[in-house]
Design a protein around this nucleic acid. Sequence first.
DNA 1: CGATTATGTTGACAGTGTCAACTGTTTTTC
DNA 2: GAAAAACAGTTGACACTGTCAACATAATCG
Lengths: 176, 176
Amino acid sequence: MRAALITAGRQLLAEAGLAGLSLRAVTRQAGVSPTAAYRYFADREHLLAAIATSGVWELTADLEAADRLGVDKLQDQACAYIRFAVANPALYRLIFGPERLSHYPELESALAAAYGVLAARVAKQAAPGRATDKTMACWCLVHGLASLAIDSRLPPDAGPAQLLAARLTATLSLEN
Amino acid sequence: MRAALITAGRQLLAEAGLAGLSLRAVTRQAGVSPTAAYRYFADREHLLAAIATSGVWELTADLEAADRLGVDKLQDQACAYIRFAVANPALYRLIFGPERLSHYPELESALAAAYGVLAARVAKQAAPGRATDKTMACWCLVHGLASLAIDSRLPPDAGPAQLLAARLTATLSLEN
DNA sequence: CGATTATGTTGACAGTGTCAACTGTTTTTC
DNA sequence: GAAAAACAGTTGACACTGTCAACATAATCG
């Protein structure tokens, strides 16, 4: 049932956005009583954290797939990242949003895993010693781009965000 | 009174975070009745948008100051940006957060102004033709870094976020 | 079988966003 | 200057939310 609540939440999130993601709406969607969720989640926030965590694992899998199948593997990871964000805007916002979802250990470790996939790629391509900085720059750039793209705050003539991600990632000049 | 509500909101935002920023709390803080704000804002969201807008103008002013007074003007802008975000985390999250605050024209134009300050700087330093891409990369990077820093999602050994901003900005290699 | 525990439901409380109706005050207009 | 209109803010109410305590029911196990 924990799982049922999470998928109900993700559906609600996709349909009605973060605003529609009330505890009661989730239980309603799952067909149970308003307070049933309290058996599985201490808090509304804990439910949100669980939903976010499920999303992060999905993102991690996408990144891994891009790295396994891609040709320009780093750019492909960036593309996959943006694709995920654009396909699940509300979920993405929940993950990185202003809720105080830090210090939920499961979420933390899921995020660490996603970060690890990128870091591994950069480590293979960047000049040694510059890897951590480059990884961070890449992460920040892609995350920032995703945030802006989702909120359609990119210049209108910027073109599709995924291409942008590839282009901008390429400007990071890993080799020096 | 519009102004009083906005400053009350910003105070609440700084003290209690986004969660504490209820319409009723703002009116309470301003010492008026719970529904008084509806004379000035159609919606809670409109109030939030106004608060966010006031923040963005402040940020714009900070960027301009950094560009006027700085030595490494681009890095200084990046530093100022991060400093603003770290000093006003809740406000920053409100501005770029998951609320549907797009399509508020005042907010839009305030953001455009901030973006313009950065764009002008980059245009002066970047190779012609690459300016728009470089501007966007810079904006995304700094915005992403700010988001991550605020939510303390940066690697713990990364050092202060403002220095990071300068370092990462420098890796953008504007000249080619 | 009976006792215990897991699972879920009812009922209630405070707090929220929002609206309609009301009162007092200021400004406009003749 | 008086009547009328616009403004500014309040009261009362409604549906909704997160949360908790108390209750019912089903599953598990000795």
